[in-house]
Simulated assay, not measured.
Amino acid sequence: MRPEFERILIKLSGEALMGDQGFGIKPEMINYVAEEIAQVHALGVQVSMVVGGGNIFRGVAGSSAGMDRASADNMGMLATVINSLALCDALEKHGVPTRVQSAIVMNQVAEPFIRRRAIRHLEKGRAVVFAAGTGNPYFTTDTAAVLRAQEMNAQILFKATKVDGVYDKDPALYRDASFIKKISYMEVLEQQLHVMDMTAISLAMDNNLPLQVFDLNQRGSIIGAVCGNGVGTRIYSDERQ
C-alpha cells in the first residue's frame, strides 16, 4: 500500500480508548489502536496524535455539574496526559518509538511542547503524542488537534471516532440520516453538523487544513484513510475537491 500523505495528525477521542467499558482505559482497545497506528508508521508516514480525556474526565461535564469551568478544563487536560502516556506505552510495545509532549509542563512524565523538537522527532521517525490540549481552559481537544496539525505542517487531520463519517443528522437518532462523502467547511458550519466543535472547524477552514472523519472501530480504517481508499468523510475548503 502506498500512503497518500507523508505527515499526518490523528485525533482520537478518550471514549475510543475505553471500548465497551463505562470508564477508563480498556487494555485490549488501546492495544488495538496502537496496532492500527503502527501499520501506518511502518509505511514511513510521520505520525502525530492528540488524544481526548473524556473516558476519565470531561471539563464541560464538570462545569455543567457546578464546577468552575477553568478548574474542570484543567482536570480534563490532565486526563489527556494519562491517555497519552498509555498510548505511548502501547505504541512502543508495537515497535513504534514515541514521545509525549505536554502543553502543561510536567518534566517527570512528558516533554514540554516545543514545536521544533516535535518536528525533529517526526523527521527522525518517532511518533509524537500531544497531551494536555492547548494548555488553556475553554478550548477542546478538537481545537488542540487542529492547532497542532498546523504547527506540525501536517497535510491532513484524521478524526478517528465512533461513526463511519459525517451525516446530515445524528444516525443514532434518525433512521433516514444520509451519509455525506465530501463536504465543505462552510457547509459544516452552516448546517451545524457536530463533526468537531465550531472553533476547530473555523481554524481548519482559515488554514485550509483538510479533515477526514471515519470509524476507528473498523479494522484497517486508519491505514485505509492514509492510503486514500475513500474511508469516511473528507472535509475541504471546497466541496468539489
Rank of each mutant, 00 (worst) to 15 (best):
V109K: 08
L209H: 05
S84N: 05
V105D: 09
L157E: 06
F139T: 03
K124C: 10
R148E: 02
N153F: 06
L193H: 04
P171Y: 12
A127I: 03
T134H: 11
V146E: 01
I156M: 05
Q108I: 10
V109S: 09
T80I: 06
A118C: 12
L157C: 12
M77I: 08
M196C: 10
L91Y: 11
Q108P: 00
N207A: 11
F113C: 09
A103P: 01
K93V: 01
G76Y: 04
G76W: 03
V96Y: 03
S202F: 03
S102T: 12
Y174H: 15
L78K: 00
N83Y: 09
V96D: 02
I104L: 14
C88V: 10
L209Q: 06
D89P: 00
L78E: 00
A200P: 01
S84K: 07
E190Q: 15
R115Q: 15
K93L: 10
E151K: 03
L173I: 13
M186I: 11
A127C: 13
K181G: 10
N207Y: 13
G133Q: 08
R115L: 06
A204M: 08
L189Y: 06
N153E: 11
L157H: 06
V195C: 10
M205F: 09
R117G: 05
D197W: 09
S202V: 04
A103H: 04
E123P: 05
S202W: 03
A132N: 12
D197A: 13
A132P: 02
N107M: 02
N83V: 08
Q192L: 03
A204Y: 04
E111P: 00
S202Y: 05
S71L: 11
I156V: 14
L193V: 08
D206C: 05
T199G: 03
G95V: 13
F130K: 07
V195A: 11
Q108A: 14
Q212M: 14
G165W: 02
K181V: 07
R117A: 13
R117S: 12
Y167H: 11
I183M: 07
P137D: 10
V146I: 09
